[in-house]
Design a protein around this nucleic acid. Structure first.
Lengths: 331, 331
DNA sequence: CTGTTAGCGCGTTCAT
DNA sequence: ATGAACGCGCTAACAG
């Protein structure tokens, strides 16, 4: 029921080339024929077949968004930022989750899209191991340090180290000396996870009057997170302040603490990371390191478009973070 | 750097037709040539060009997921369910958000996908107004009542009315007689929104000893939600129980109440709808009507695949809901 | 300014 | 069991 370029051409009494030009280089078509063809296209509700267009041009007007999971609000926000930015440019977005599929990258066929946005994908051996096969431009939402040999690609990232420093320093200045750190899942080998751990270690190297315990936590499974927090409490360090690597984990910790009748922030203070939308709804509302999650996605798209337009200069956008003091920390 | 079917054929000393058969109807190829071609494909890491395949077959192995927004956890969970189900079948997922783009449906080109999953898309005039142009199969995650003339399509939905009845009845049995209802945004004309409102009205038609106030609330903007809840409190009904149409709104209400020093559930009880993952993390944890959000997405995909396989019998999957009593209601 | 034509890569009759 | 040839719908040289 949908006609093709040939039929439009016949209807307008011109050749397919003219119709095609009408779409791609209207300035090269006589105003008169142009308007005539256009009215016919309008009337017949014509639009070029995307598959044919892709086959012919090699472009798909589609971008892939690759995240480890959609079960963490952080990645949802990233994806949301990408999607809206892409839609605004008339691009479609394919969404892929890696989950625990180890052969993910091998199965990914880049001919489906013009470019991709990749985030937080703990790649063993670094990005260079799996992403070097890709010739389509892509932007990584993560620290540039894991780029390896792919120094040519752009990144968008936040000051993790600084954020962690801010949180721990705040705790320290409030008099805390015993800390609990809830890291991401032990299986998370992303550069993001490793970098945050390093930042923690670095902090305590400079604050030898403190003790701390690190405990891996999962944000997918509530019971695991609570258990991890329990470990922290039953250990020898008896923390008075807990820092969680992301807000999902902080949520679990909060629940664990309150269940045990531990007052937050009175007895134990808590700070998370990411500032997901609902963290301000917790009670006590969660103090957290805020990053511009949505914006990261939007900017990544922006950088990707630069590439698509031919600008191959790699750009690294670093965003600052902010310590948002809400109710889970003492004033 | 990637070879095509022609080159593979030459390498194997056969024609392109044989290589193609090798992929699509291997049983029609001599075992010997089959294995030979396959090893070459393996070695050269060959896989057919998706665009060419689509152009030739008319299929894309891609499904569209259309939701109003990705800013509500509910839709994220839906999308997540769809995505994982699709990925398991080797399908890709395009994600579209309608936001407030009125011309969304007109711009949507169905040639990009083999089918679509549509959810909660308040379509003025019903689904039939905008979706009838689509010839690709699609499944609606919503009540069948809005299907209009498209009685041929499958749906997946939950018992909204029953859920609302459960919540309000629970409130009633606990002795509450003055109710506050926080509905979705006034602009939400989806069948879901309307249906929930009808269910509320229906309940109070049968419980004339109650008073209630309905107030539209937005889950995108916290301040609006809090203001809506404030309206409820400052009105004449002085509710002792508040029911929110979704958990995002309930979160805002919770915050509003606690800010004003109103104890939940002691002074005012609160029940939400959806059971988004973080609702159990609120404090008090949110009592809510739980729906199998992820599963709705998965099932929708399942029904869609039936269509793609040729089974045109419309199926309507109705899922039950459950009143999850947590801490925001009295025991 | 417009038309002809050759691909783009693959699926698929129809012969052989 | 295999190959030759056409069609899918469009873009881009090239010619006029």
């Amino acid at each position: 029921v949908r006609l093709n370029i040939r039929e439009i051409a016949d209807l307008a009494g011109v050749s397919v080339a003219t119709v095609s030009r009408c779409l791609n280089q209207p300035e090269k078509v006589a105003p008169k024929t142009l308007s005539k063809i256009r009215s016919i296209m309008e009337q017949k509700d014509y639009s070029p077949n995307p598959s044919a267009q892709s086959l012919s041009t090699g472009h798909t007007k589609t971008v892939a968004c690759v995240v480890p999971t959609l079960k963490n609000e952080y990645f949802n926000q990233l994806a949301e930022g990408c999607q809206s930015a892409l839609a605004a440019q008339g691009y479609r977005m394919l969404i892929y989750t890696m989950q625990d599929d180890v052969s993910f990258w091998e199965k990914l066929d880049q001919r489906h899209f013009d470019g991709m946005i990749v985030s937080g994908v703990g790649i063993p051996g670094g990005i260079s191991g799996k992403l070097e096969k890709f010739t389509v431009p892509f932007v990584v939402i993560d620290h540039p340090e894991e780029l390896g040999e792919r120094q040519d690609i752009s990144t968008v990232y936040v000051q993790d180290e600084a954020g962690i420093g801010m949180a721990l320093t705040h705790f320290y200045e409030k008099g805390n000396r015993r800390f609990g750190i809830l890291t991401g899942p032990a299986s998370d080998t992303s550069s993001l996870a490793k970098r945050r751990i390093r930042a923690v270690e670095e902090f305590f190297r400079r604050h030898t009057d403190c003790s701390f315990t690190m405990e891996p936590a999962d944000y997918t499974d509530l019971s695991l997170t609570e258990k991890a927090c329990g470990q922290l409490l039953s250990g020898t360090s008896h923390p008075t302040a807990i820092f969680a690597f992301n807000d999902m984990i902080a949520a679990g910790a909060l629940r664990c603490l309150l269940k045990r009748g531990i007052s937050v922030p009175k007895e134990i203070e808590l700070i998370g990371f990411d500032d997901i939308p609902l963290s301000s709804f917790f009670t006590p509302s969660l103090s957290t390191i805020a990053a511009p999650n949505r914006k990261l996605g939007e900017k990544a798209v922006e950088l990707l478009f630069r590439r698509l337009r031919g600008d191959t200069e790699p750009v690294h956008l670093l965003y600052g973070v902010e310590l948002l003091l809400r109710e889970s920390t003492r004033t």
